[in-house]
Amino acid sequence: MEMLISLSPIILMFVIFYFLLIRPQQKRQKKVKEMQADLQKGDSVVTIGGFHGVVHAIDENTVIIQAGDGSKLTYDRSAIREVVQN
């Protein structure tokens, strides 16, 4: 019983960390993965590096993004940060 009482602050701290840090991060990661899986040709996107463009073609692991001047760049799907609504 004394051991449980002495460990309770550590257990409480773990529970607080889980609900304040770990769980929200897992939700964000899940949302980003879903967004990257739902990419479609014609979507306006922003990459992690800040490049803005339109999805020209999609492969299993790569995305070809067309810039405003017509140039096309190939990125990994994981490099897409967000889909921008026009």
Rank of each mutant, 00 (worst) to 15 (best):
V45S: 05
H52W: 02
I16Q: 01
V32I: 15
L39E: 05
I48H: 00
M35I: 13
S44P: 01
M35E: 04
Q36F: 10
P9T: 08
Q29C: 01
G68D: 15
H56D: 13
V32G: 03
F14S: 06
S6I: 06
I11E: 07
V84R: 13
D38V: 00
V84F: 02
V84K: 12
H56Y: 10
S78V: 09
Q40P: 01
E82D: 11
S71N: 12
I22G: 00
S78M: 11
I10C: 03
K27S: 11
Y75R: 05
M3E: 11
N61G: 07
L39K: 10
H52I: 02
V55G: 07
V32W: 02
F17L: 07
K31C: 06
A79N: 11
S6T: 09
P24K: 12
H52G: 00
K41N: 08
D69N: 15
F17C: 08
N61V: 08
D69S: 10
V32F: 08
E2P: 10
V84A: 04
D69W: 02
F14A: 05
I48A: 06
Y75M: 04
L21A: 06
F14Y: 01
V45H: 05
T74S: 15
L7G: 02
G70R: 09
I65K: 11
N61Q: 14
Y18D: 09
V15C: 05
E2R: 10
S71M: 10
P9N: 08
M1G: 14
V32M: 15
K41S: 11
P9F: 06
V83R: 15
G70T: 09
G49N: 11
Q40G: 02
H56Q: 07
Q85I: 00
M3Q: 09
S71C: 04
V54I: 11
Q85V: 00
I64A: 15
N61P: 03
M3R: 13
P24N: 08
T74V: 15
M1K: 08
N61D: 14
F19C: 01
I11M: 13
V46Y: 00
I48W: 01
K31M: 14
F14P: 00
G68P: 02
P24G: 01
G70L: 05
N86R: 10
K27F: 05
D69T: 06
F14N: 07
R77A: 09
S78P: 01
V55L: 01
I65P: 07
D76M: 15
A57P: 02
M1C: 11
Y18P: 03
T62P: 06
V55P: 09
A67T: 04
Y18S: 09
S78H: 10
D43R: 03
K30R: 15
K30L: 14
I22K: 11
M13D: 07
Y18G: 07
L12M: 11
S71A: 08
D59Q: 12
L21H: 04
Q85K: 05
G53V: 03
V84G: 00
Q85F: 01
V15H: 00
S71L: 04
Y75C: 02
I58C: 04
V63A: 04
I5H: 07
Q40M: 03
I80D: 04
L20I: 05
